[in-house]
Each structure stands twice: as structure tokens, then as C-alpha cells.
Amino acid sequence: MDQAEVKSKLKAFFMSDLGVDGDVLQYDTELFGEEIGLDSVDSLEIISFVDSNFNVSMTGVGKEHFQSINTIAAYIEAHKA
């Protein structure tokens, strides 16, 4: 799976499972900022989604990797088996 596909899958997940409006969600949009407002509950969902779809564990991973779709995708790329 290439990076574009990973990002598109992540975006679809944010829209369908976390109720984020697709119009305002770009790949570099700050996820935990005021506009999208993700919180600790959402991060559990992200971890679970990444684990089961990309086989990459993000448990205990630093905040900086959750900043945007770009940073999550980069983490997946760097850690995929």
C-alpha cells in the first residue's frame, strides 16, 4: 500500500468513524487542534484502527506522530513490517 492510499484510508476512517467533516480535513490539518478537536478517546480509536488495518502498533507512541494524517501515515510507513 503506498502513502497516498494509506492517507486516503485514514481520511475515510476519520470521516466515517470519528464524525469528522471531510471538507475541512486536509492531510496536514491539525487533528487535536480546535477545529477537529480530537481527544484521548479518539486517539484510542486511531491506535486500534492503525493496528488492525496496517498492522502497526501506535500504543504509547509520542503525541507528535498523531498531529495530522501526514504524520500518522509517515509513522506507519516507517514501522510497517
Binding site: 470519528l18 464524525g19 469528522v20 467533516d21 475541512v24 480546535e34 477545529e35 477537529i36 478537536g37
Partner: peptide, 18 residues
């Protein structure tokens, strides 16, 4: 509808959770 939230000034960061 999204219009309802707009009229009430409810932000997406909130209503997406409902």
C-alpha cells in the same frame, strides 16, 4: 442537519462526537 449546528453556533469539533 449541518444547518442546525451552524444556526446554533455548535462547532464540528463538538457535534462530530454525537
Amino acid at each position: 442537519a449541518l444547518e442546525d449546528y451552524k444556526e446554533l453556533g455548535v462547532k464540528m469539533a463538538f457535534y462530530r462526537k454525537l
